[in-house]
Write a protein that binds this DNA or RNA. Structure first.
Lengths: 123, 123
DNA sequence: ATGAGTGTTATAGTTAACTAGTACACTCGG
DNA sequence: CCGAGTGTACTAGTTAACTATAACACTCAT
């Protein structure tokens, strides 16, 4: 995994895990890879992984069982709420950025549609 | 001006200036505030302002006249291209993030529309 | 020429992010 | 019980971002 510069790695790891979870690659109740495993896979230090997990743990999205590992919560309501929150954050960020670039709300959908048409390709 | 944590100040300043320019608050050819003025206004060090300007200068969007100040380029084509680029960056980032959250392209417009309706308020 | 206003550069110090390495504590299957 | 696998914690060191401060160089109006 390559990381963008200018944004802390531990936040990118956190985001990566959130994505894995809301997308279902890491379903509710599953054990996520160990911190050492993640550290190797992400070519990152154990401490950095740990830091990424702390926030998620505090949020209740991850349950830590000492000596066993970290598990995705089985609280489906929390998972749904989390996903919605992640979507809202992106939507809020996007609309705010576009506003600051001088795009009126009325034009937002139009611009997005146009963009999507223009880049019909992969991604 | 308040800065977000977790993202370098000089980048936020750069972004701020880009926005001022593409929105027309800083029209083509105008002199932007001096580095010392900006440093005070943004409650930031001169060096940090300097760093923010360097990239914009390299991009040709700002013209530096030693002893006089920094001026917005008069190259309208470059300005237009820059604005389009900023929009594209946001659009690309948004669609990519939504994709990673499991949102299909077909649903993107729908979700955005729904979001805009839900938050009819200010901002 | 001088002074005010400008960009430029350099030094030194602080802090947050990250790494490397080590050690400790817990759980579970054998 | 023991060893492998796990999370946790601590120390030490590096680097990038940022600050504070100062000095230098240029331009222009007076």
């Amino acid at each position: 995994m390559e990381f963008k510069d200018n944004i802390p790695i531990y936040l990118q790891i956190e985001q990566y895990l959130y994505q894995q979870i809301v997308q279902g690659q890491l379903p509710a109740g599953t054990k996520i890879p160990s911190v050492r495993r993640l550290a190797v896979d992400l070519t990152v230090n154990v401490n950095t992984v740990q830091r990424a997990l702390q926030q998620m743990n505090a949020n209740g999205i991850l349950i830590t069982k000492r000596g066993e590992g970290n598990f995705v919560t089985e609280d489906e309501a929390l998972l749904a709420k989390t996903k919605q929150h992640l979507l809202d954050v992106e939507l809020q960020h996007f609309t705010e950025q576009m506003r600051q670039l001088g795009v009126k709300r009325d034009h937002l959908v139009e611009i997005l549609t146009h963009y999507l048409e223009e880049y019909t390709d992969d991604r």
